[in-house]
Nucleic acid binder design. Sequence first.
RNA 1: GCUCCAGUAGCUUAGUGGUAAAGCGCUGCUUUCGUAAAGCAGAGACCAAGAGUUCGAAUCUCUUCUGGAGCUCCA
Length: 578
Amino acid sequence: MRILTLHSDYIKFEPTKKALKTAPEVKKEAEEMKECLVVFMSVEKNDEKNPEQVVDKLVSEVDNIIKQLKTSNVVLYPYAHLSNSLANPRIAQEVLEKAELALKKKYSVKRAPFGWYKKFTVSCKGHPLAEFSREFTAETLKKTVGEDLTEEERKNMLRDISKMRIDSRKLKENDHRLLGQQLDLFSFNEVAPGMVFWHSNGLIIFNELVELWRELHRSENYSEVSTPQIMDKRLWEISGHWRLYKENMFLTKYEESDYAVKPMSCPGGMLIYRSRPHSYKELPMRVSELGKVHRLELSGTLAGLFRVIQFTQDDAHVFCTEKQLESEVTRIVKLFVGMYQMFGFKEFRFSLSTRSEEKKDKYLGSDAVWNNAIKTLSNALNKLGMNFKIEPGEAKFYGPSLDLLIKDSLGREWQCSTLQLDFNTPNRFELEYVDESDKPQTPIMLHHVVYGSVERFIGILLEHTNANLPTWLSPVQVKVINFSESNVKAVEKLVKELKESGIRAESDLSNKTVNYKVRDAEIMKVPYIIVIGDKEEENKTLAVRVKGDKKPKFGVKKEEFTKKLLEEIKNRNLKHLI
RNA sequence: GCUCCAGUAGCUUAGUGGUAAAGCGCUGCUUUCGUAAAGCAGAGACCAAGAGUUCGAAUCUCUUCUGGAGCUCCA
């Protein structure tokens, strides 16, 4: 809420015409008050969350001001022009009415009509305390007063935020949102729209994917870095984000300076590059960064894991010379293709995103630079014999990009991996290396992501496989079930041994029938189900049921099972070895 | 953000004006079972939040929040 108070000799006002259709009817008569405090006020969007608190705050502000003046007359004057983010009129009127009631207990109050155009004259006294303006909201009130919630407020609030239900009517059976709930992988909560709460099972998948990503990048000589989550506005001005991406960035403050929560990891990475001089001998220099990024998205675009506000980008930056560019592009394209074949995606194609002519001011860099970049990308693809389609107007603001589109088991196309050429950022950050003849040169930069967003990739993978994940990705790899109470110890021993050899094994010792427990493990998509009964204890073998099979395999030797399973996990096989 | 739709127990749903019903899950007891659901009993929701209409609201109206479909945007 914003208020402007004037200690006045008199005020006269008269409604002329309705400004809002919903405004209550009033008499079109002039009203007047003498020797009063005129409070011009506007109720703002922020106040909607807690109108009562705002009323309290308004009353206490008026109290404070009046204490210093010799008057007990108050005129409440709704004055929308004080703000450009007005509250809903209903709420504004409610606040106004409640404020009037509260103030009437102490003062003689007049209220100008809400939702009407009014003509008015006012005579301000002009002494030092005659004019004040104040701005406050429910939140700042909370902080300034510093009071804890009452027991009841806390309970109501907790009840309010503790639910988020899926409307499954229009979702397919294998929708990742439903699978995520069934398999206890992740959830969403209204306190963090568009941000994932990873449950233990889901985080296992997440971490396995990250581990694979790390292995791949390590083997191609990437070094991994990590940069801060929020950084000073100046950095984003340098990078160009402030001008071209500001509306998507979360802003915050630290000691009077503006900060932005990173929507991309690149600018931070540039500062690491700049932290010491570089030689041409270091190039190509490959750096990876698993960055949590936040992007303000229109609320209607959010969709499960597919589109979120906070996500994890498996970013990488390669700094190289112009000569090295094509071979780096080729290498990265191969990296992409290899990766998706690993997950069993067989169909894919490339698309080359370029600028559109109409919106040239939305991009950084000259024509020559752009044309050159596009040429390099298409050359590399042609040499690899990969087909691609050019998509004008799809490029990022700093350079053209090459996207890998994969087709999932449902025939849908997804863009996950992308490779972006960036001839601009290195210039803006004045990145340099020293060449053979000891002269400073600007490196060319490549950005690339393999998963794109780890969150979204998990969503795609869940639907692609209907959550029948390969063993290496399964949250629980082996479920061990006891036949009767006498077998509990044998089950516990086996689970302990499996865990010690690095297998994610769990027991189910609950007082249920074997049938029931097998069914439960099948529903939870556990790849291997082992039942231990007296027979197994006597013969020292295992009865192993592979997920989906109709019958178990009896008489499996424990050592052999463990060995094959470890092999399957280590090689990240898509198919079961047992 | 816009348009339309939805929000009832941990989950799936029934309940269209008289303060909530069921299945699964959970807890307890019985049962000791051979590869997709053993039996009985019990606990558990003030119906997303707020306001309004009404003698009375899960149910009608409005607002807010969140989710879904589409538009738009994107990793």
